[in-house]
Design a protein around this nucleic acid. Structure first.
Lengths: 220, 220, 220, 220
DNA sequence: GATGAATGAGACTTCATTCAT
DNA sequence: GATGAATGAAGTCTCATTCAT
């Protein structure tokens, strides 16, 4: 009876799998070579299809890239947003769990290369930059800001400048991916990411707790 | 008396200035557009010469880039090395002055874009990466490591894992340039670099001083 | 009783209708975009079938075009040939009725776009040109020539150079379709086709009647 | 002394000649194959240069085409405008001389293929159509209309609807080029252009003269 | 030294046609 | 019959590099 659930002929199942195969090939090559230097022919070849086939599924190179982002990063943001909405403990715990979770779900994986790629090339591809800003940066920023506001509202954080602190919190994540995809591979053993994040959080959260005398609005 | 300092006729001074004019044009465009996307024709035009002339002074695009690096970053490293060698105060002071000096001499200027460029594109240009590793990263790393070793030897720092701590110290500088040349331009007001470095140094130096109970070898 | 005229089940009627649906879609697009620029995928989509299905009915793009011509222009020529054969009035009347009928049956309709298309693109598609020459131009030319010969034989026309006068008579029709499908859409109100044809016929027939002193062999 | 007039080295003279060589090759191929079907590589090869060279002189295919039009048709229009402005005989004579001159300067030459090309393909290249409309059609139309207005103002023509009569006068020219570049090559001996124009002018001018009882506003 | 014309490999994208299901 | 996924040749345009003058 188990075959009754899939009545599609094989080639059709193949078709359903194609976009994923292409996206998998694309993320590999985008991460490896960047956006501009990745040739669509290589993406196609790695997915085991011809150049033209790629265009059956993606309108052009930029759309392929957007699809990669939508497929790899955006869902993780959605999950994180849900977690944030449901969480009901101390805001410091929430912040810590989100940032450590970011490393587990994004930072440690290939997909982190996409973040590095965007910082590296967005200047040359404005439409891509705009898309990424909208779909990733804005949502991520809103999420972090909302955690800060939650903490302030509940009296768990000092009333800091939310915009600035948000960016300070983004900084170490940006650094980790930059490091990982540039100097990291040339260096051995250095910069243990989890320890780094842990240390960063110790400092940052300490600066956010109420009652401490920090006066800098950025709280770093 | 005005001619005593330079007895060459004007056109010859012009000729001698060519490489500098080309390097100035090149750094502008490399920083603005990255290595691969910068067209040599644009470099030549900005320097007010023809494309062919560029090849009289630089063998090819990669050599031009190397010359830009040698011209802009390497001297600053040399100066810093001298300062380190001559310094005779407390190692924590030395470390602080080198990193704040890095911001004044490099981070705050256009040339910081070269650092970002290398992190962004070295994957696609191995020879460039090797050159930069040799001329900049290795020397910079050695310099920082030597400061740490000096501090340890003089009993001013705890005996930490020098290699790892070196990279931890590099990290905030890398972050600042990455930020400045990617998300920075899209955000307003955030991440005041000097405050950020100051805060970082407070923490890092605190972790390096002897007598504090930190046990993590990365000391971050 | 409703089924007595068509005993086939609906899907079979549908199947029989396929070629016509495809031809209808094809003529629309050929007229709109020309031969080379019409994509078979668009033809198929407009007919509501897949690209592959189109190839079940037509060997390739050229055969599809030939079928369009056979389906739309050729029958009209056949009808005209019959009319000519049966007509027994004055040859001038015959000529006039054929040309005005051409406007009613072809010139005023979408199918006139096919004529324009052929003049526009036959240079790039020799096989198409040969087919059209054979199926349309030769037959049309023969028909017009035969009317002239009839008129001369019956003493209703002067003995003119039939070949040349035939082409002079074709010219205004060619002009009308060219105009209609190129500059026409950009201009308002101008060139009323029926008035134009009428005026042309007045002149041409006047030149063909015996007893007038015209000496030019083209009789225009 | 004859060499004193040209002090340029040969390659520079070559450079000056390049655009003309390319335009000559381009007009040949555009006329032969149309706009869409002409490959830039073929244009380059015919001019004896490589593909890339073409792009040194013309930004893209459309600009090349515009340059061809500017180079071949536009000057003739300018000349005609001057002739019209200077003419001081009877308007009928002026009209006749302009239309016969059009045949001598344009209709009889390769460049007439450009006119046919535009009627054939403008639907698929709106920017091209707009350019041609502006640079050729509008100017040509204005010129013809001005002749009609001149004739009416001087009492040499009846007060007709200028817009419509202008288009009627354009029609035979359009027909001649259409014929010449489509069916013409397949037919022998037919449609003697000068005789055709002559006959057309006889009729049209007769219809324009005052005192004749024609009542149709288009005067055809 | 200086020029800038010329090259040609290589990238993206399109579309008629085929064929396994 | 019907589908639509897959192919790959072909076309436009870019740009690092060369070289005759």
């Amino acid at each position: 009876m188990e075959c009754s659930l899939d009545t599609k002929p094989r080639w059709e199942r193949r078709k359903d799998a194609r976009p994923q195969e292409l996206l998998a090939a694309a993320i590999d090559l985008f991460v490896e070579r960047g956006f501009a230097s990745t040739r669509l022919e290589d993406v196609a070849r790695r997915a085991g299809v011809s150049k033209g086939t790629l265009y059956l599924y993606f309108e052009n190179k930029e759309e392929l890239f957007k699809a990669v982002v939508r497929n790899s990063i955006v869902p993780v943001i959605g999950d994180a947003e849900s977690s944030v909405a449901e969480f009901d403990g101390h805001s410091a715990e929430l912040l810590r769990s989100v940032m450590m979770g970011w490393w587990d779900r994004i930072g440690a994986h290939k997909v982190s290369g996409i973040i590095k790629l965007v910082t590296a090339e967005s200047g040359n591809f404005p439409e891509l930059a705009a898309f990424y800003q909208e779909e990733v940066i804005n949502r991520g920023t809103r999420m972090i800001s909302s955690m800060l506001e939650r903490g302030i509202a509940r009296g768990e954080f000092r009333p800091v400048n939310v915009t600035q602190v948000t960016q300070v919190l983004i900084a170490p994540m940006l650094m980790l991916v930059t490091w990982k995809h540039s100097v990291g591979p040339c260096e051995q053993g250095s910069l243990e990411p989890l320890a780094f994040l842990d240390a960063f959080l110790d400092i940052a959260l300490h600066g956010l707790l109420p009652g401490t005398g920090a006066t800098q609005s950025t709280a770093a």
